[in-house]
Simulated scan of single mutants.
Amino acid sequence: MRSDIAVVQIERFSQSWESDVWSLISQVWAEFGIHDDPRAESDLGDLAHAYQEGASGFWIAISDSRVVGTASLKDLGDGLIAMKRFYVLKEFRGTTIGTAQRLLDHLVQHARQGGATTLCLGTIELTVAAQRFYEKNGFQRVPRSELPTERFAAEIDTLFYKLPLA
């Protein structure tokens, strides 16, 4: 590996990283014109407990003692699991460092180990690069009506994807 490429570790969220997670999410939201406080979101205001049921979980990507990415899974039951809070700082996106790919691979592995058969997600239209990333990784765009979006989607989500895991 080249010495100028950042080393990124994926680890389970702990409360010691909470303010760093909020900061990262605020930065990514601002990039897309969202200036809300992440702590106002019910799950982000209680990260220690929001992703604890079943195969749920919340992970962070860390480089040089700094949170550079987040990703979570919300177990919806019946083999369905939702990917949420998938954020990567702009300078850590792309194939050179591979932070997003490492986070996604970690989520898929965890979901499969937890018995999930389908991974789903919601996103917004502005995230064109993210959509390409999901599609490159086998996600299929589906109509909102095909998923129980009331159990996982954010209000602003307009596009929905699913990935068969079985």
Rank of each mutant, 00 (worst) to 15 (best):
Q131E: 14
S42C: 01
G98M: 06
L159A: 13
K136A: 15
R141W: 01
V68L: 01
S23M: 08
N137V: 06
W17P: 04
A6I: 01
T123R: 05
L119F: 12
L163T: 03
I81Y: 00
S26I: 02
T70F: 02
D78V: 07
D105Y: 00
E155I: 02
A116D: 10
Q101Y: 07
R151H: 09
D4A: 14
E18S: 12
G57W: 00
L89D: 14
L44Y: 10
A116M: 03
A40M: 12
R66D: 13
I156S: 10
I34G: 00
A55I: 03
Q131D: 12
G98L: 07
S26K: 14
T118G: 07
I5S: 05
S26T: 14
F32W: 13
V67P: 05
K84W: 04
P143T: 09
L107V: 08
Y134H: 08
K84I: 11
V21N: 03
G138S: 08
A48W: 02
D78H: 15
R2M: 12
W59N: 06
T149S: 13
F86H: 02
A100F: 05
F32M: 07
L147E: 06
L163W: 04
L147Q: 06
N137Q: 12
L126F: 08
F32Y: 15
K136C: 09
F32T: 11
D43M: 07
R2V: 11
W22G: 04
P38R: 04
R93V: 08
K136R: 15
E135A: 14
L107F: 08
L107K: 03
P143N: 10
S63R: 11
T123Q: 01
H49T: 15
F152K: 08
T158A: 02
R102I: 10
H35P: 08
T70N: 00
L47W: 02
G138Y: 07
I5M: 07
K74S: 10
V67S: 03
P38W: 04
Q140P: 01
D4G: 13
E135F: 03
F86V: 06
V128F: 02
A111V: 05
E11D: 12
D75R: 02
G69L: 10
I34P: 00
G33D: 04
S26D: 10
S42F: 01
D78R: 14
F58D: 04
D20S: 13
F139E: 09
R132I: 12
T117Y: 05
S3L: 09
M83H: 00
D43L: 07
F160Y: 14
V108F: 04
Q9S: 09
S3M: 10
R93D: 13
A40P: 01
V7D: 15
Q52H: 11
L47H: 08
F160V: 05
S26C: 07
P143A: 10
D157S: 12
Q15R: 14
K162H: 14
G122C: 02
S42A: 11
F152L: 02
D46F: 07
D37H: 07
E31W: 04
G45D: 10
I5F: 05
Q140E: 15
T123C: 02
T70I: 06
G115C: 06
Q113D: 13
V88Q: 09
Y134Q: 08
E91F: 00
F92K: 08
Q113A: 15
L107C: 13
A30W: 07
R141V: 08
M1F: 13
F160E: 09
F32R: 11
G77S: 12
F92V: 09
I60H: 00
